[in-house]
């Protein structure tokens, strides 16, 4: 039960403002989800490079000198940008698996929040505006971003239980609602080799989409399939390296508003999340139809 915001830029000129715009949107959704918050920012993708977002319960100890230790282990240069409890480690894409293995050895308490070419994920327990401030969301830039404020229903209020959930490279999902068949689905996905960090229903939805995309479907097709296989109430907003999608369950009770201009596509759980966007007064604003996949790709 939560608040969702999302912003997918079409106009390059806005990319420097992505973080500031997203932070403004996220701040309007605090009451919908006061327990924790998180956001995924897509940007600064460099060919041949990988970004690994790390989270640590003891960032001072774990991140201190970590870049050097990893470089020594994999014999390749890496870069570490620390933001509060999180850090983004950049390395050669070809070294990403070796780096992840080395991290597990060197700092076992560090968790990988997401990996990919463009994605960075930040999430923490706390009031959403505080979380955004902690990570300095305002100053981030990029092509698209998805944010979430959480009011936990059945699973625990923890950093890992916060959204977005990333279960595949450059993929992320946020959710408002409550799934009613996630336990069975989790068991069958585990049987098919997926792994889970939490007991959260939304992580099952994220893993389901990753599993479908591993079978060769694109995000839009995976979302179509989710309408058959997921039961319960949901509004999902999902991101990939170049895409942005929205889908609501067939009953479509949980609130959702989309806005589109020549410059961007924006999503908000409530209209007020969109009210501060440039040119919103002349945007096409509508509520997504039930059981209908909306998908934009650059």
């Amino acid at each position: 039960m939560c608040g969702i915001v999302g912003l997918f830029l079409k106009d390059k000129a806005l990319e420097a403002d992505l973080g500031a715009l997203t932070a403004g949107m996220l701040a309007t959704m605090c009451e919908r989800g006061p327990d924790s918050a998180g956001f995924a920012v897509y940007g600064a993708a460099k060919d041949g490079k990988a970004k690994i977002t790390l989270q640590s319960p003891n960032p001072d100890a774990d991140f201190d000198g970590l870049a050097k230790k990893v470089e020594k282990a994999v014999d390749s240069s890496v870069k570490l940008d620390v933001r509060a409890t999180h850090a983004v480690l950049s390395c050669k894409a070809s070294e990403a698996d070796a780096v992840r293995a080395a991290l597990g050895e060197i700092v076992p308490s560090v968790r990988v929040m997401g990996t990919g070419n463009a994605i960075e994920i930040y999430k923490e327990v706390g009031y959403p505006t505080d979380v955004a401030k902690r990570f300095d969301l305002k100053r981030m830039s990029g092509t698209h971003a998805i944010g979430h404020t959480r009011m936990a229903t059945e699973s625990a209020v923890t950093t890992l239980g916060a959204h977005p959930f990333s279960t595949g490279p450059d993929q992320c999902l946020v959710h408002n609602g409550s799934l009613s068949n996630h336990n069975n689905l989790r068991r069958s996905l585990i049987h098919d080799g997926m792994s889970f960090e939490t007991d959260n229903d939304s992580e099952v939805a994220a893993a389901y989409l990753t599993w479908r995309m591993k079978q060769g479907l694109d995000l839009g097709q995976a979302l179509e399939k989710s309408l058959e296989d997921l039961d319960g109430f949901f509004t999902f907003v999902v991101g990939t390296k170049t895409g942005f999608g929205v889908v609501r369950d067939p009953i479509a009770c949980k609130p959702a508003v989309l806005a589109e201009t020549d410059d961007y596509v924006a999503f908000g759980s409530e209209y007020r999340a969109l009210a501060g966007l440039p040119g919103i007064d002349n945007a096409k604003v509508w509520e997504p139809e039930p059981a209908t996949v909306y998908f934009w790709e650059r």
Binding site: M1, C2, E31, M151, N176, S178, F233, C253, K254
Partner: peptide, 14 residues
């Protein structure tokens, strides 16, 4: 079985 103008605790708060 559900209220006509809200669903879930986030809407209930409002």
């Amino acid at each position: 079985c559900r209220h006509p103008d809200w669903t879930g605790p986030d809407d209930l708060e409002i």
